[in-house]
Amino acid sequence: MRVLIVGAPVFAFFFAGPGPAAALDLPQIGGKLPLTRGVTQIEGASGAGLAPWAVIAGNETEDGVGASAFYTATPLSDYDFSAYGAAIGFFDRFEISYAHQEFDTGSTGALLGIGDGFTFEQDIFGAKLRVFGDALYGQDTWLPQVAIGVQYKQAEHEGLIQALGGEDDEGVDYYVAATKILLRESLLVNATVRFTEANQFGLLGFGGDREDSHTPQLELSAAYMLTDRVVLGAEYRTRPDNLGFAAEDDGYDAFAAYAVTDNITLVGGYVDLGSIATLNDQNGAYLSIQFGL
């Protein structure tokens, strides 16, 4: 029944555009506590900024189908990195997601010899299955909430990717995420292991002249709850280093997330992705907005 009820708002949400007023006028659907759905990480999965968590997109519980949409802008030192997308969460159990990433080289493109304003882009289709555990209600056990996920990535500019030493313009990441809310400590912790061959999230292709197979990478998040609507968090994400022409570094961020309403979450933070395509110290402030039903 709730599936049917949620159908109309989701439809309206995607086609009428995610205006704040529209979100506020929605009927009382959903049911998750604020921020317990996480926000949307840079590849479209529910999580924090860099890491997917074991939580499922949208506000609905095991009794319904929820959805979310996001836009994240990350102006780095020499590039503009942005992403947008949407996800549907089924019965707080299964999530499908889509994200589009753009990596605008701006005037740096001319410097790199690939053209002024050259933009790397990719589409990411994700799926995540919550396997066991409950991050919130399992306060009497150390068992975390655990999910497994995949992210299929299709990058543009195959020719350039191959010229840079990349093996492929498409690839699949596999991950296992474990999330635990330590309510007694007002803390959320997450650990994700990702098997990936992606170069710069996949924007520079998959595999390379230095390494052309999946390697395990670790993504750690911690978030401290200041109130039930404001959390402060930090993350660390190790990354492969597959391409000979340019080193790739681990990434880290620090962020604050604010659940303005049950449907709107704002995230502001600082991210450092290290060296990208020979230009070092790519860091900057980032801003993300997420709508959830």
């Binding site: 209600y137 399992g138 306060q139 009497d140 309510l183 007694r184 709850m225």
Partner: peptide, 10 residues
């Protein structure tokens, strides 16, 4: 509040 809610959550 969270110390108490941690008891109630399970």
């Amino acid at each position: 509040q969270n110390r108490f809610l941690a008891l109630l959550a399970p």
